[in-house]
Each structure stands twice: as structure tokens, then as C-alpha cells.
Design a protein around this nucleic acid. Sequence first.
DNA 1: GTGCTCAAAATTGTATACAACTTTGGTTAC
DNA 2: GTAACCAAAGTTGTATACAATTTTGAGCAC
Lengths: 228, 228
Amino acid sequence: MTEIPIPAPTAHQLFEKLELAIHEHQLAPGTKLGEDDIGDIYGVSRTTVRAALQTLSHQRLVEHKRNRGAFVAQPSVREAREVFEARALIEPRTAYSAAERASPEDILKLQAHIDAEHEALADGNHGRALYLSGQFHIEIAKIADQQTIETFITQLMSRSSLIVALYWQRRAAMCESHAHDALISAFADHDGPRAEELMKNHLVDLVTSLDLRNKVSAPLSLKDALSR
Amino acid sequence: MTEIPIPAPTAHQLFEKLELAIHEHQLAPGTKLGEDDIGDIYGVSRTTVRAALQTLSHQRLVEHKRNRGAFVAQPSVREAREVFEARALIEPRTAYSAAERASPEDILKLQAHIDAEHEALADGNHGRALYLSGQFHIEIAKIADQQTIETFITQLMSRSSLIVALYWQRRAAMCESHAHDALISAFADHDGPRAEELMKNHLVDLVTSLDLRNKVSAPLSLKDALSR
DNA sequence: GTGCTCAAAATTGTATACAACTTTGGTTAC
DNA sequence: GTAACCAAAGTTGTATACAATTTTGAGCAC
């Protein structure tokens, strides 16, 4: 059997791999991300790993503990509340703008997102379904054509993904909701006020489905988590 | 004359130096930030410079042009509009919360900020006055006790600083306004609605004092800008 | 068994070296 | 005079090396 050399990922590609692994809950909050360990797994030097980890750290997906190393971030209960308060402040208005601007192509794109989400669910890939449902919110910001707001929402979705991993007790609940379908309908009607209200309620539903008392995370070792 | 060796800055210290230099308009938008140049000036290696530039890049204070190098960011007119739209979405509500929560110590802190701002103005240090007036907005987010929102506002202030450098035709105008004094008064009265309204108007005033038609920047060379 | 000491291991931060890729400017052919 | 081409310089991205700091753990005293 001939070994086909896998090209080493660039720093940015490594960042994207790790980001996705965190978003899809392959890497649980609290998992240690040793620079040497990651370098060995992906065949890159610590320089490359450090660049990727720094980017993840800026996005607050990983936390650096002084002289202990990098870990997948574990948002506190307080941070969890703040993230959803911020989303409640920003996203309804964004949905309003998106509803006013949405083109037929935009609607189709959103629908495709939902379809992919359902497909992942059918495959039992809950992590991916969760990731896609987050992307749905980012797509809305794109439709609103507000790049600055979009970067904020992207950051909030990243944090939300970690929060869900830590505090979500009943994972099935979210995906069963048809809040996203209702939003699409409002977009199709260009009904800004309705989209705003739907988004507001959707976020309230999300918060109330969290249990901010208990953490339910179970950090795995790095290589166990990445070898699937 | 004995040379006293200046300790080389750490990557994070270098980042802070450059961040401040940009915020205070020592480094104009468009200034090229060569890795070797900065390394020579501060006596550090490219590794350290790259780490600092990556952080600045993530904050969108610098832009990396492919194989051309790093430059102090030049927000486009579109970005300028978006930044102030985002501020209009976030800051009034934050001011409302801050007014409800402000303690007497908070008020004193804000007052001290304004005093320092006036002092800088009296010294003719417009760059520093502008920086301090930005910090005032961040202090409000701190009082509102919303760390997530605070990071967003911090990012928006960074961008605003660049926008002011590029599009502000009459620099004196802002600093003469007493909008910040009025806000403090509303905070002292714990008058949330008034604070929200004042902030809203303050932001409108800021936008209208911009001239989004012309860029008024004049990038200097790096070492000229930093040797003052 | 508990607590202290010290050495070994681990980890970070930074410097240096090097290869690949662009851009640039000058030279040459036409 | 113009266009193509090639070489040189500049720049980036990554690997490796090394010093400094901190954690860890084993051994020992009590």
C-alpha cells in the first residue's frame, strides 16, 4: 500500500478545520488543544498551529490559560446570558431589514439551508444540523446586506454553539421547531414586522430551552475527538 | 553617554503600541506596515511583529493585501455607513441600561474622562482627545455591565476612529459638542429613556458631521509617523 | 499519612533560517 | 516606441532552535 502524502494544511486551513470541529461539537468545550499535539496530528509546525489558535482565540472559540495551554472555550452562565441578550438586540432588526430586501434567489438559498439541515438530522448528524441552523442566521445578515452586523452575528453564533454544547439538555427540541420555516415565509412576503417578531420569539424559545444551571460537557482527548 | 537598553516589547505590548498609534491618528489609514520595518524600529523579530499584526488585522485596524503587506485599514464609504448604522442599533439601548445601573462612582469616572478629554484638547492634542471621546462610549458599555456588547462597541469605536481620520472634514466640531455632558446628566438622574434619546441624537450628529464624499487622509511613512 | 524540596518535564514566547511566490524594473527584440 | 521577457529584489509563510517560566511528580523529612 503506497502512502499518498497528504499536503500539510496552511495556517488558515487549519483554523477552518478546527473551527468547524468546534462548531460541529467534535471538540467539546474544555478540550485541551496542545500546540505539539495538533502539530503532530496535522503534520505542521508549532508556528502554523499558533497562528491558527490565535485566530480561534480572537473569535473567542478557544481560551488561553496562562502557561497551561489553549482550550476550547467554556462560556460561563453569565456569558451565555449576555450572548443571547446581544442576539435579541441585534437579530430581530436584522431580520426586519432582510425581509424588506430578500430576493427570490435569497429565499431559495435559505430554503436550501433548511433542507440541508433536515438532511443532516435524518443522518443523525446532530452536530452538523446545529452548525447549519446557525448558518441560517448568518445568511439572514447577508441578505440584510450589513457586513458589519454580519460579523457580529457570526461571532455570536460561534459563542452560541459553545453555549449549546454546554447548557443544552434536550438537543432534539431545537431542530424540531419550525421557526426557520416561519421566518422564510415572512421573508417571502417581504413582511418586515412579522419577520422581526418571529425572530424575537425564536430567540426567546432558544434561551428558554437552555438549562443554565448545569454544564453537560464531557471533554474528550484531542486525538480521540478528531479521529472519527 | 551610556546607552540604556530598552527592553524589547512583547508581542502584546507591540500590539497595544500600534493600536494606540492608530487610534490617536499617528498612523494614518493607508500607511504601510512592513514586518521588517516595524521589527527594526522596535527591536523585535518578524515573529513578534506578525503576531501583533494578526491581532490588529482581526480587529480590522489593519488590512493585509495579498503579497503586498499590511496596511492601516481604509474603511470604505459603505463600511463607514454600516459602522454608524450598527452603532445606532446598539448604543442607544446600551445607554438606556447604563443609565439605570450607573452608580455615583460610575458618574465620577465618566466625568474624569470628559475632563481628560478637555485637557487634551487644551494641549492641542486632537488625536488623544478623539481617542478619549471614543473611550467614553466604551465606558458606558462597561457601566451597562454587558461585556459582549462592550467588545462590539470597542470594535465599532476602532473602526470609527479610522472613519473619522478618513472622512472628517472639520475636526473641531465634535469636541465642541456637549453631548457627553448631557449624557452624564441623564445617567446621574437614572433617566434611561432620556439617555437613549440623547445617544441616538449624538450618533446622528456624528454621522452628519462626516463628509462621506472625500477622503482626507495623507499616509506618512512608517518611521516618520512614529518618531514624534 | 502529610507536607516540603528539588529536579525533570512540559509549555510558552521569540529569534533565526529558508523556500516559494509576487512584484518590479530594466533589457532586448521587433 | 512598444511589448515581451527575464532577472533581481522584496515579501510572505512555515520550520526549526532555544531560552525562560511553570507545572508536575517523586523522594524525603517529620
